[in-house]
């Protein structure tokens, strides 16, 4: 009986955490771990409607205080100048694979048809906050710029840097053209604050918070994000290995 116990203890020891991590670092398991978000995305899209809308709440449901996350104040001189000028001379650059590249002022963006939605923001860390967002649907801007049929993703270039690395994000055309995907210039009935991403931030309501790029300076239609930044499709995807598809 003693020897059997020893064997069982041995089996137990093999299962302990360091062993598990060593297995996780072998190439097949590493590749498997990095292919799961694609599998999960395809599986979820198989059982969910493409156009399904994230729930919209009422003003009574708003979080009393919407937590600020990530950058609170971009550090560049350019951003500081725009901030001082109340973003009066700031322009949103729309480019990449579009037939009509655009430079849109904040007042023109505000003059475009608006969408206001009260939605829940789910951070990858686990917390949630409900806020009201006002902005222009990204699909309108893509149509206005006459985006190419070959474009597969939309890239958002941002004004905030982490060290020398600028923040950026990408979403595919399904999320980019979703009716609730907006470039928001207003929050909770006010002009979007600097801490929450002024002058413009992305809302991609069916994905986790790190997709919702703040301080959006440029929007580009692209075919692939392999050559952009670290090649994984977003700042946190490059820096920390977060999944590109942030639907869960």
């Amino acid at each position: 009986m003693t020897s059997r116990r020893t064997v069982l203890t041995g089996i137990g020891a093999c299962l302990m955490l360091p062993g598990c991590e060593r297995i996780g670092k072998t190439k097949p398991v590493h590749d498997l771990l990095y292919s799961l978000d694609g599998l999960t995305m395809r599986a979820q899209r198989l059982v969910t409607a493409r156009g399904a809308l994230a729930r919209e709440y009422t003003e009574a449901d708003l979080s009393p205080r919407f937590r600020v996350n990530g950058t609170r104040q971009p550090a560049s001189a350019d951003y500081a100048r725009h901030q001082k000028e109340g973003f009066a001379n700031w322009r949103l650059n729309v480019g990449g694979m579009v037939r009509r590249p655009l430079q849109i002022s904040l007042s023109d963006l505000r003059a475009m048809p608006t969408r206001t939605q009260i939605t829940r923001h789910d951070c990858v860390e686990g917390w949630s906050a409900i806020g009201q967002w006002t902005g222009v649907q990204l699909s309108r801007i893509l149509d206005f710029a006459r985006v190419s049929e070959r474009a597969k993703y939309v890239l958002f270039r941002c004004a905030d840097n982490y060290g020398d690395t600028p923040y950026y994000e990408t979403v595919d055309m399904i999320e980019a053209r979703h009716p609730q995907t907006i470039l928001a210039w207003g929050m909770n009935g006010d002009i979007l604050s600097v801490a929450h991403g002024a002058p413009l931030r992305l809302r991609s309501e069916r994905q986790l918070g790190y997709k919702h790029a703040k301080y959006v300076m440029g929007v580009e239609a692209i075919e692939s994000f392999a050559e952009i930044g670290g090649g994984k499709g977003g700042f946190w995807e490059d820096r920390s290995g977060y999944d590109w598809w942030a639907g869960i």
């Binding site: 955490l17 360091p18 991590e21 996780g24 771990l33 799961l36 860390e125 946190w236 290995g241 999944d243």
Partner: peptide, 22 residues
């Protein structure tokens, strides 16, 4: 001694969690 991985990494934890979940 209870977390996977032992050294904190949310992104790695999420990947292991999805593997386990599948």
């Amino acid at each position: 001694w209870v977390t996977i991985p032992a050294e904190y990494s949310l992104s790695a934890g999420r990947r292991y969690h999805l593997l386990g979940a599948w």
